[in-house]
Protein backbone atom coordinates (compact mmCIF):
# COMPACT_ATOMS: atom_id res chain seq x y z
CA UNK A 1 0.00 0.00 0.00
CA UNK A 2 1.83 3.07 -1.20
CA UNK A 3 0.41 6.54 -0.95
CA UNK A 4 2.13 8.30 -3.78
CA UNK A 5 1.30 11.87 -4.49
CA UNK A 6 0.12 11.87 -8.09
CA UNK A 7 2.84 13.06 -10.42
CA UNK A 8 2.16 13.85 -14.03
CA UNK A 9 5.04 11.88 -15.44
CA UNK A 10 6.43 13.47 -18.53
CA UNK A 11 4.04 16.40 -18.34
CA UNK A 12 6.13 17.89 -15.59
CA UNK A 13 9.27 16.68 -17.25
CA UNK A 14 8.92 18.41 -20.58
CA UNK A 15 6.01 20.75 -20.11
CA UNK A 16 4.35 19.33 -23.20
CA UNK A 17 1.27 17.89 -21.62
CA UNK A 18 1.82 14.20 -22.22
CA UNK A 19 1.24 11.89 -19.33
CA UNK A 20 2.47 8.53 -18.15
CA UNK A 21 5.26 8.09 -20.65
CA UNK A 22 7.14 5.85 -18.27
CA UNK A 23 4.32 3.34 -18.32
CA UNK A 24 3.65 3.09 -22.01
CA UNK A 25 4.72 0.05 -23.98
CA UNK A 26 8.17 -0.11 -25.45
CA UNK A 27 8.14 1.41 -28.90
CA UNK A 28 5.72 4.15 -27.94
CA UNK A 29 7.79 6.83 -26.32
CA UNK A 30 5.67 9.89 -26.98
CA UNK A 31 7.77 13.00 -27.42
CA UNK A 32 10.90 11.17 -26.31
CA UNK A 33 10.99 9.57 -29.75
CA UNK A 34 10.98 11.43 -33.05
CA UNK A 35 11.11 9.19 -36.10
CA UNK A 36 13.83 6.69 -35.32
CA UNK A 37 15.58 9.07 -32.94
CA UNK A 38 15.19 8.01 -29.32
CA UNK A 39 16.17 10.04 -26.29
CA UNK A 40 18.35 8.37 -23.66
CA UNK A 41 15.23 8.58 -21.48
CA UNK A 42 13.73 5.67 -23.41
CA UNK A 43 16.65 3.43 -22.50
CA UNK A 44 16.55 4.25 -18.79
CA UNK A 45 14.85 2.14 -16.15
CA UNK A 46 11.51 3.34 -14.74
CA UNK A 47 13.08 4.45 -11.44
CA UNK A 48 15.57 6.64 -13.30
CA UNK A 49 12.82 8.05 -15.53
CA UNK A 50 10.76 8.84 -12.42
CA UNK A 51 13.65 10.86 -11.01
CA UNK A 52 13.58 13.00 -14.16
CA UNK A 53 9.77 13.21 -14.41
CA UNK A 54 9.46 15.18 -11.19
CA UNK A 55 11.67 18.28 -11.13
CA UNK A 56 11.62 18.19 -7.37
CA UNK A 57 13.13 14.73 -7.22
CA UNK A 58 15.77 15.61 -9.80
CA UNK A 59 18.91 16.63 -7.88
CA UNK A 60 20.20 18.58 -10.92
CA UNK A 61 17.84 21.33 -9.85
CA UNK A 62 19.97 21.98 -6.77
CA UNK A 63 22.54 23.50 -9.14
CA UNK A 64 19.91 25.07 -11.41
CA UNK A 65 18.42 26.87 -8.40
CA UNK A 66 21.84 28.23 -7.46
CA UNK A 67 22.38 29.46 -11.02
CA UNK A 68 18.98 31.16 -10.98
CA UNK A 69 20.14 33.08 -7.90
CA UNK A 70 23.43 33.96 -9.60
CA UNK A 71 21.55 35.30 -12.64
CA UNK A 72 20.81 38.63 -10.97
CA UNK A 73 24.00 38.96 -8.89
CA UNK A 74 26.69 41.18 -10.45
CA UNK A 75 30.10 39.56 -10.89
CA UNK A 76 33.37 40.90 -12.31
CA UNK A 77 34.83 44.38 -12.59
CA UNK A 78 32.16 45.64 -15.02
CA UNK A 79 29.67 45.28 -12.17
CA UNK A 80 27.15 43.49 -14.37
CA UNK A 81 24.88 40.53 -13.76
CA UNK A 82 23.54 38.22 -16.49
CA UNK A 83 20.16 39.87 -16.00
CA UNK A 84 21.52 43.35 -16.80
CA UNK A 85 21.87 42.38 -20.47
CA UNK A 86 19.43 39.49 -20.85
CA UNK A 87 16.61 40.46 -18.50
CA UNK A 88 14.61 37.45 -17.36
CA UNK A 89 16.33 34.17 -18.09
CA UNK A 90 13.10 33.14 -19.87
CA UNK A 91 14.20 35.49 -22.67
CA UNK A 92 16.76 32.85 -23.61
CA UNK A 93 14.06 30.35 -24.65
CA UNK A 94 15.22 28.62 -27.82
CA UNK A 95 18.89 29.45 -27.40
CA UNK A 96 19.77 26.14 -25.79
CA UNK A 97 18.18 24.22 -28.68
CA UNK A 98 20.40 25.83 -31.31
CA UNK A 99 23.94 25.52 -29.94
CA UNK A 100 26.76 25.02 -30.81
CA UNK A 101 26.83 28.02 -33.18
CA UNK A 102 29.56 29.55 -35.33
CA UNK A 103 31.12 32.59 -33.65
CA UNK A 104 32.58 35.23 -35.95
CA UNK A 105 35.11 36.49 -33.42
CA UNK A 106 36.37 33.00 -32.65
CA UNK A 107 36.29 31.81 -36.23
CA UNK A 108 34.96 28.49 -34.94
CA UNK A 109 32.10 26.83 -33.11
CA UNK A 110 31.05 27.83 -29.62
CA UNK A 111 28.86 25.81 -27.24
CA UNK A 112 26.67 27.14 -24.41
CA UNK A 113 29.36 26.66 -21.77
CA UNK A 114 31.77 28.70 -23.87
CA UNK A 115 29.09 31.31 -24.63
CA UNK A 116 28.53 31.80 -20.90
CA UNK A 117 32.26 32.18 -20.25
CA UNK A 118 32.60 34.54 -23.22
CA UNK A 119 29.87 36.69 -21.67
CA UNK A 120 31.67 36.58 -18.35
CA UNK A 121 35.11 37.53 -19.62
CA UNK A 122 34.04 40.04 -22.31
CA UNK A 123 30.91 41.70 -20.94
CA UNK A 124 31.15 41.20 -17.20
CA UNK A 125 34.96 41.34 -16.94
CA UNK A 126 34.69 38.31 -14.66
CA UNK A 127 36.77 35.16 -14.39
CA UNK A 128 35.64 32.31 -16.63
CA UNK A 129 34.03 29.37 -14.82
CA UNK A 130 35.87 26.08 -14.93
CA UNK A 131 34.43 23.45 -17.23
CA UNK A 132 32.34 21.00 -15.19
CA UNK A 133 32.38 23.30 -12.17
CA UNK A 134 29.10 23.52 -10.30
CA UNK A 135 28.71 27.13 -11.38
CA UNK A 136 29.10 26.47 -15.09
CA UNK A 137 27.03 23.28 -15.02
CA UNK A 138 24.21 25.04 -13.20
CA UNK A 139 24.23 28.06 -15.51
CA UNK A 140 24.40 25.90 -18.64
CA UNK A 141 21.50 23.81 -17.37
CA UNK A 142 19.53 26.94 -16.44
CA UNK A 143 19.95 28.35 -19.95
CA UNK A 144 19.04 25.07 -21.66
CA UNK A 145 16.10 24.59 -19.30
CA UNK A 146 14.50 27.64 -20.93
CA UNK A 147 14.34 25.60 -24.16
CA UNK A 148 13.01 22.45 -22.51
CA UNK A 149 10.43 20.77 -24.70
CA UNK A 150 11.55 22.67 -27.80
CA UNK A 151 12.97 20.58 -30.63
CA UNK A 152 16.73 20.58 -31.05
CA UNK A 153 17.44 22.86 -33.98
CA UNK A 154 21.14 23.06 -34.72
CA UNK A 155 22.29 24.57 -38.03
CA UNK A 156 25.22 23.11 -39.96
CA UNK A 157 25.17 25.26 -43.07
CA UNK A 158 27.37 28.24 -43.94
CA UNK A 159 30.48 28.66 -41.83
CA UNK A 160 29.46 25.74 -39.56
CA UNK A 161 29.72 23.26 -42.43
CA UNK A 162 33.45 22.45 -42.23
CA UNK A 163 33.22 22.04 -38.44
CA UNK A 164 30.29 19.69 -38.86
CA UNK A 165 32.41 17.60 -41.21
CA UNK A 166 35.18 17.44 -38.60
CA UNK A 167 32.69 16.36 -35.93
CA UNK A 168 31.29 13.72 -38.26
CA UNK A 169 34.76 12.41 -38.96
CA UNK A 170 35.44 12.12 -35.22
CA UNK A 171 32.16 10.25 -34.72
CA UNK A 172 32.99 7.59 -37.28
CA UNK A 173 36.73 7.38 -36.56
CA UNK A 174 37.77 4.23 -34.75
CA UNK A 175 40.00 4.91 -31.78
CA UNK A 176 41.57 3.41 -28.66
CA UNK A 177 42.86 -0.06 -27.91
CA UNK A 178 39.39 -1.46 -28.50
CA UNK A 179 39.35 0.20 -31.91
CA UNK A 180 35.77 1.42 -31.66
CA UNK A 181 34.16 4.56 -33.07
CA UNK A 182 31.26 6.42 -31.43
CA UNK A 183 29.18 4.93 -34.26
CA UNK A 184 30.23 1.36 -33.42
CA UNK A 185 28.12 1.51 -30.26
CA UNK A 186 25.59 4.25 -30.86
CA UNK A 187 24.70 3.62 -34.53
CA UNK A 188 25.29 -0.06 -35.11
CA UNK A 189 24.41 -1.49 -31.71
CA UNK A 190 22.07 0.92 -29.93
CA UNK A 191 19.33 -0.89 -28.08
CA UNK A 192 21.54 -3.91 -27.49
CA UNK A 193 23.02 -5.00 -24.18
CA UNK A 194 26.62 -4.16 -23.38
CA UNK A 195 27.18 -6.40 -20.38
CA UNK A 196 24.52 -5.18 -17.95
CA UNK A 197 23.76 -1.86 -19.66
CA UNK A 198 21.70 -1.07 -22.71
CA UNK A 199 23.43 1.01 -25.35
CA UNK A 200 21.57 4.21 -26.18
CA UNK A 201 21.78 6.23 -29.35
CA UNK A 202 24.07 8.64 -27.52
CA UNK A 203 21.71 11.60 -27.93
CA UNK A 204 22.87 14.83 -26.27
CA UNK A 205 19.48 16.55 -25.82
CA UNK A 206 19.38 16.08 -22.02
CA UNK A 207 22.82 17.47 -21.12
CA UNK A 208 24.10 18.62 -18.70
CA UNK A 209 22.62 15.59 -16.99
CA UNK A 210 22.39 14.34 -13.43
CA UNK A 211 24.13 11.01 -13.64
CA UNK A 212 23.50 8.31 -11.03
CA UNK A 213 27.04 7.03 -11.36
CA UNK A 214 28.50 10.49 -10.77
CA UNK A 215 25.94 11.32 -8.06
CA UNK A 216 26.13 14.77 -9.54
CA UNK A 217 25.50 16.79 -12.67
CA UNK A 218 28.02 16.57 -15.49
CA UNK A 219 28.61 17.99 -18.96
CA UNK A 220 28.27 16.31 -22.34
CA UNK A 221 32.04 16.57 -22.74
CA UNK A 222 32.61 14.73 -19.45
CA UNK A 223 30.37 11.94 -20.73
CA UNK A 224 32.24 11.78 -24.04
CA UNK A 225 35.54 11.59 -22.16
CA UNK A 226 34.12 8.59 -20.32
CA UNK A 227 33.19 6.96 -23.62
CA UNK A 228 36.66 7.60 -25.00
CA UNK A 229 38.28 6.10 -21.91
CA UNK A 230 35.93 3.14 -22.13
CA UNK A 231 37.37 2.18 -25.50
CA UNK A 232 40.77 2.91 -23.96
CA UNK A 233 41.50 5.95 -26.05
CA UNK A 234 43.15 9.08 -24.71
CA UNK A 235 40.32 11.56 -24.07
CA UNK A 236 40.49 15.17 -25.25
CA UNK A 237 39.95 18.11 -22.91
CA UNK A 238 36.46 19.36 -22.10
CA UNK A 239 35.84 22.37 -24.30
CA UNK A 240 38.44 21.26 -26.87
CA UNK A 241 37.77 21.96 -30.56
CA UNK A 242 37.51 18.20 -31.13
CA UNK A 243 34.68 17.81 -28.63
CA UNK A 244 32.87 21.01 -29.64
CA UNK A 245 32.86 19.85 -33.28
CA UNK A 246 31.64 16.43 -32.15
CA UNK A 247 28.97 18.19 -30.07
CA UNK A 248 27.90 20.01 -33.24
CA UNK A 249 27.62 16.74 -35.16
CA UNK A 250 25.66 14.85 -32.51
CA UNK A 251 23.48 17.86 -31.66
CA UNK A 252 22.46 18.19 -35.29
CA UNK A 253 21.94 14.44 -35.35
CA UNK A 254 19.49 14.99 -32.47
CA UNK A 255 17.53 17.71 -34.31
CA UNK A 256 13.83 17.21 -33.65
CA UNK A 257 14.23 15.57 -30.25
CA UNK A 258 13.04 17.87 -27.45
CA UNK A 259 15.59 19.54 -25.18
CA UNK A 260 15.38 17.62 -21.88
CA UNK A 261 17.97 19.45 -19.80
CA UNK A 262 18.55 18.67 -17.02
CA UNK A 263 17.88 14.97 -17.58
CA UNK A 264 18.65 12.08 -15.23
CA UNK A 265 20.69 9.22 -16.62
CA UNK A 266 22.52 6.14 -15.50
Amino acid sequence: MRHRTAVLAGAVGLGLGFVGIAFTEAGDWGDYQVGDKRSGYTYAQPETQAMQDDDFENPAFLLVDLAAEQWTIPDGTAGKACADCHGDVENLAGVGASYPVYDEGWGKMMNIEQRINECRTENMQAEPLKYDSKGLLGMTALVKLQSRGMPMNVAIDGPAAPFYEKGKEFYFQRRGQLDLACASCHEDHSGEQLRANRLSQGQPNGFPTYRLKWQNMGSLHRRIKGCNRQVRAEPYKSGSDEYVNLELFISHRANGLPVETPSVRN
Partner: peptide, 13 residues
Protein backbone atom coordinates in the same frame (compact mmCIF):
# COMPACT_ATOMS: atom_id res chain seq x y z
CA UNK B 1 -5.33 15.47 5.23
CA UNK B 2 -2.20 13.36 5.05
CA UNK B 3 0.27 15.34 2.95
CA UNK B 4 3.47 14.10 1.34
CA UNK B 5 6.65 16.01 2.11
CA UNK B 6 9.77 15.69 -0.03
CA UNK B 7 13.21 16.99 0.88
CA UNK B 8 16.54 17.15 -0.89
CA UNK B 9 19.82 18.78 0.13
CA UNK B 10 23.03 19.26 -1.83
CA UNK B 11 25.73 17.31 -0.02
CA UNK B 12 28.48 14.90 -1.19
CA UNK B 13 27.79 12.37 1.61
Amino acid sequence: DVVEIKTLISHPM
